[in-house]
Design a protein around this nucleic acid. Structure first.
Lengths: 238, 238
DNA sequence: CCTCGTTCGTACGGTTCCGGACCCTTTATC
DNA sequence: GATAAAGGGTCCGGAACCGTACGAACGAGG
């Protein structure tokens, strides 16, 4: 089996590992293409694999018994999923859905547990990522409580933009409305507001970021804190 | 120094520990009364102590650069705080505020880190608690997105009720409005709805739960899932 | 080129909630 | 007992969103 070089990996967690430790765990990484809409984990099912995206975007989607659904967290090549695997939890609590197709390396759950127990650096990076993701969750919670649809959409587009290469975000209004837990027409009109300001261009099934900085200013305090914390948590680890 | 017996502790995490392991860590636990309004951790400050409440309630409050604030998570004697201490993080990201006065045992951050590294069972319980708390965060996020004020208030009162002994919740409308990130009059009218249905009685600075089951039914899917997951995660650990 | 399913634009009434304000009651302070 | 502070009840206009619906535009397949 060919072991991918660390530098070529393009997953930020794996590149953070000391080289020797990366080489240790690398044989347990298998390349895997994840189609749009694929479920990386399903609520109530056993966790079988841990995924390290190198491209594409996935979402942690919480749902209630009555069928209400909303995105709680988003991840791309800066993290891994499901984070609960690191806590010795065998069943997934939430759905994890791939929203933009991408490539990943994945690891068997048992191998993941093995390295969590046997490699300090690996464990440290994973644990830090949990903390970073957890911070993102708190800001999703506060943003859902205090921000309007326009700002929440701006925040969400920025988080997507952070995780794609280029400026295209190939998603439909319908899908975005599920993530933000708002009406589909609310997404349409909110996108018009952003487009009217020149921040984005909106096409059928595709959104293009045109002026990221202005978009950040528009989002105001809805965007930035979790991202800054991620940087802080992941810098100077060893 | 007198070491409190495990059974007398009344903090569910500490009572979950095997007795031998509890005795190991117990000398590092110091009793501490936490006044209402006290900050157990402040955003940006170093984490100095880890707290195990035995009574009272605390809140994890997220805030944005522009001063928006909202509660992201609540905890009592079923948990500990700050959870990020377990991840080797030295600075607190959020404010942790005591909303109902109570007693606690607290541990120096350095001692906490020591036991996380040197006692498997201790570490496992703490990590499980992180997972449980993280699940609570996701449901706060979805609830903020999809539920109205009445349901969110019901959910919140139920979570408080889980963490007090008796049926009294001594809090003001003003304070609740901060937690839910809504207007203070919105809390007043929402409480009237609950009171009109006979679920609660509302007095000046005090709320009494009169019919918990009916309150749960009113809250519908806003309440229950995280609590069930906590049970599942914390049962049959060893 | 035609058809059909997907995606998006738009409209309308109704509800919830906000921002802000005002005043009354209860409790604390001196 | 006077005064101040805290807590709570209520009202108003307006904004934001919702549920729902309908139709136009686009794109893939025959």
């Amino acid at each position: 089996m060919v072991v991918p070089s660390q530098a070529s990996l393009n997953n930020q967690l794996l590149t953070l590992l000391p080289e020797a430790d990366y080489r240790q765990i690398a044989p347990d990484l298998a390349p895997f293409n994840v189609a749009r809409g694929a479920l990386l984990a399903r609520a109530g099912d056993p966790i079988e694999h841990v995924y390290y995206l190198t491209s594409g975007i996935g979402s942690l989607v919480a749902s209630t018994p009555e069928g209400n659904r909303a995105e709680a967290g988003i991840f791309g090549r800066e993290g891994y999923i499901p984070t609960s695997a690191a806590m010795g939890v065998e069943l997934s609590v939430h759905d994890v859905i791939m929203q933009i197709e991408g490539d990943a390396y994945r690891m068997e759950f048992t191998a993941f547990r093995k390295w969590m127990d046997n490699n300090r650096y690996f464990a440290k990076v994973m644990i830090r990522c949990i903390e970073a993701f957890s911070i993102q969750l708190t800001y999703t919670a506060i943003s859902n409580a205090v921000h309007g649809v326009d700002e929440r959409l701006a925040r969400w587009l920025l988080m997507c933009h952070d995780r794609v290469s280029g400026n295209e975000i190939p998603l439909t209004h319908e899908f975005i409305s599920l993530m933000l837990a708002v009406r589909r027409p609310s997404v349409t009109t909110a996108l018009h507001v952003l487009e009217g300001n020149g921040f984005i261009r909106s096409f059928r099934g595709n959104i293009i970021i045109r002026n990221r900085q202005a978009l950040e200013e528009f989002a105001r305090d809805a965007y930035g804190k979790p991202e800054a914390e991620y940087q802080r948590l992941m810098t100077g680890l060893f």
